[in-house]
Amino acid sequence: MNNDSLWTIFLNASLVNNFVLAYFLGICPFLGVSGKLGTATRMGGAVCFVMLVSSICAYGIHRLLVAIDAPYLQLISYIVVIASTVQLVEMFIKKMSPALFRALGIFLPLITTNCAILGLALFQTNKGYDLLQSIVYALGAGSGFTLALVLMAGIREKLELATVPDMVQGTALTLMIAGILSLAFMGFAGVGA
């Protein structure tokens, strides 16, 4: 059992140990969908929702697996739950907003292979959070992911107007900005302690 206060857990997950910039989880969508500000915000929302649902499910599964003494099934059952949640979100978005569905494109089904979500489920199990702590942890991680994605999209929209050398264009430039952002987020170290 872990008795960190809820506020500490939230701050820790969103700022101090930001999932993208400190743990390197969810780098693929971070590099792929951060081109436009609007898409980035909505992608963040979708990831937040999947994180919340899968975190609650992961808590239940963990209790169940402990009860029937089968910890080796942990990874397989987590990934199945995440995959089905993503499928649910995909159907929901397709019905509610076809435009957003097209904008997110391939990255929507790829939320399944977003390490941030599986990582969240594994970390909360390792840290031994109870249900409420898990929910707060998921919310913190989701907001941290959205914050990083939106910051990156804002910077990249500005960069489109700048001229950069041929050599630097593309992924290399994005990674350098991510490095600087990550340096900036290090300034939060100690806030949650």
Binding site: A172, A178, G179, L183
Partner: peptide, 22 residues
């Protein structure tokens, strides 16, 4: 060793490969 170093190192390797390609 810090997380930002990972981003910078990968960016530099990609720069090198881009340079060779160009």
């Amino acid at each position: 060793i810090l997380p930002s170093g990972g981003f910078f190192t990968l960016a530099l390797w990609l720069l090198l490969f881009n340079h060779l390609k160009l």
